[in-house]
Design a protein around this nucleic acid. Structure first.
Lengths: 251, 251
DNA sequence: ACCTGAACACCGTTCAAGT
DNA sequence: ACCTGAACACCGTTCAAGT
C-alpha cells in the first residue's frame, strides 16, 4: 500500500497493461508472491477488477508466457539462415530463449507447470520445427528430435538441484569452519562419489565443496551433445521404423 | 468425511505412517488436492497434529520423495554389473526409476519444484555417479554427464505439452466432426509445421490430429542419444579443459 | 507426549451492487 | 462498461490449552 507509482491512474486497465504489470511484478518479487490481490494492488485496483481483463489466474499465467515469448523471436534469428545451417540456427535460437528466460526467472517454473497450447507457444514451436525441416530432416526424425529437445527449446533444463547451495545443505555460507569440516567428513563417508565430482568441479581448488557449477557451460554441453546426435541420425537417414525393426531383431 | 477406513485408529501416528498416507493420498487424488487438512482427515486426526511428526509441508514433500526413492533401488540393479557395462546399468536404472515415477504421477512435479538435498536424493545421485566412474569415466566427464542427464536420472523429461490432448486444444474429444475440421483448417493455416509432424506421428493414419505420442519411445530415444554421446566422448578421452581451449581457438 | 480449537494471515473466485 | 465489497471455501501455520 502507498506504493502506487505514477504507473497507475494511467487511464483504464486493459489486458495488455495487466499482463505487463504481472510480468514485471513477477520479475521483482517472484512467482510465489504473485497473487491476484497483490497484482491488483500494484495496479491501484482491487483484485476482482482483474477478472474483467483475464478470465482467471491460469489465463494470466498463459498471457505472461506469451509476453516473454515475444521477447525471444526478434532476436538473433536470421530467417535466411536455416538450410544447411540448421544446427547453428537452432543453437542461436535456443540460446536467445535462454537469455530471455534468465531475465524472467519465474518463467521456467510457469512453463514447466503449464500445458501450454496458446497461440504464442504453438507459433514458437512451429517455427522451431521449421528449422529442422529446412535443414532437410524428415518429418519423422523431426518429431522425435522435438521430443528430445523438450524444455530445451526454451533454453532451460531441469537442474538436479538448485546450485546456490553446496551439496552439503542449503546453508553452507553461514557455517563455521569447524561445522563445514564436519559436513565434509560426513559427505566423504556417505556420498564419496558426489564429493569427488563436486570438488573436481570447484575451480578454486581450496574450497571444500564445489559451489557454483557453470550453468551456461553445462547447458551448452548437453545441447551440443543432442545436436550432434541429431546430425548423425540425419546423415544416416534414420527413421523410427528402421529403429523398430532393428530393435525387434536385436534384443 | 466419513471416509475413515480401518486404516486409522491403528494406534498412534508416527512419521512413517504420515508419509505413507501422504504418498497414497497423492496417488489417489493428485498433489494439488494434498493439503495438510485433508491428509489429517485421512488419518482421522486434525491437521495440526501432523506438525508433531513433520516440521512443515516442505518436509512432508521431501519425505514423500524419500519414500518413492526407496522403491527404485531394489529394482533391476545388479551391483556386479557396472564396469564395461555402465551403459546398460544406467539404462536399466533410469527405466526402473521411470516405472516408479509412473506409478506416482505427482512425484515428477514435486521433484521439479524441489531443491532436493535430502539423504535419499544424495544417496541416489551418489550411486548414479558410481556407475559412470565404474565405467571408467573421468571425474570431469562424469560431472558434465550428470548435468546433461538432469531430471532424466529420475526417468522423466520435461514434455513440451501434456499429451492427453491433441495439438489443437484441450478438448478435442468433445468436438463435433465439423468443429474438428475447422480446427484442422485453422491449424493448417497457422501452424503448418506442427501439423505435419503431428499427423505423421499418428499411427492410425485416418485420424485428423496425431493424438498420443509414444512417451516411452520418445524417452528412450533421447536417453539413448545422450548415452551414445557420452560413450563417444568417453572413448575420445574428452575433457572440459580441451573443449575450452578448442573454443578459445575456434570461434 | 501427543492431540485439539481457535485464530491469523493469507489464497482464487462468485456475485450482486454501485458508478 | 468498468470497478467494488462482502462473502465463500479454501490454504499453511502458531500457540495456548486440553488429556
Amino acid at each position: 500500500m502507498a506504493q502506487q507509482t505514477e504507473e497507475h491512474r494511467r487511464g483504464r486497465l486493459n489486458r495488455q497493461r495487466v499482463l505487463q504489470a504481472a510480468v514485471s511484478l513477477a520479475d521483482e518479487v517472484g512467482i510465489d508472491e504473485l497473487s491476484m490481490r497483490r497484482l491488483g494492488q500494484e495496479l491501484g485496483v482491487v483484485a476482482m477488477a482483474l477478472y474483467k481483463h483475464v478470465a482467471n489466474k491460469e489465463e494470466l499465467l498463459d498471457g505472461m508466457v506469451e509476453e516473454i515469448i515475444s521477447e525471444i523471436d526478434p532476436a538473433v534469428i536470421d530467417p535466411a539462415a536455416g538450410g544447411e545451417d540448421w544446427k547453428n540456427a537452432v543453437r542461436l535460437r535456443v540460446l536467445s530463449a535462454r537469455a530471455v528466460l534468465q531475465r524472467h526467472r519465474w518463467a521456467r517454473q510457469v512453463l514447466e507447470s503449464r500445458t501450454n497450447q496458446t497461440p504464442a507457444v504453438l507459433g514458437y514451436m512451429d517455427s522451431f520445427i521449421a528449422m529442422f525441416l529446412a535443414g532437410g530432416f524428415s518429418v519423422d526424425l523431426t518429431h522425435h528430435v522435438m521430443h528430445a529437445m523438450g524444455s530445451r527449446i526454451w533454453g532451460f533444463t531441469q537442474e538436479l538441484f538448485d546450485d546456490s547451495a553446496g551439496p552439503g545443505g542449503g546453508t553452507g555460507g553461514e557455517m563455521s569452519p569447524e561445522a563445514q569440516a564436519a559436513v565434509f567428513e560426513e559427505m566423504a563417508a556417505r556420498y564419496p562419489n558426489i564429493l569427488q565430482v563436486a570438488t573436481a568441479a570447484s575451480h578454486d581448488e581450496g574450497s571444500v565443496v564445489g559451489r557454483g557449477c557453470d550453468d551456461q557451460f553445462e547447458f551448452e554441453f548437453a545441447l551440443d551433445l543432442l545436436l550432434d546426435g541429431f546430425e548423425r541420425l540425419h546423415r544416416q537417414g534414420w527413421t523410427s521404423r528402421q529403429a523398430k525393426k532393428a530393435q525387434a531383431k536385436g534384443s
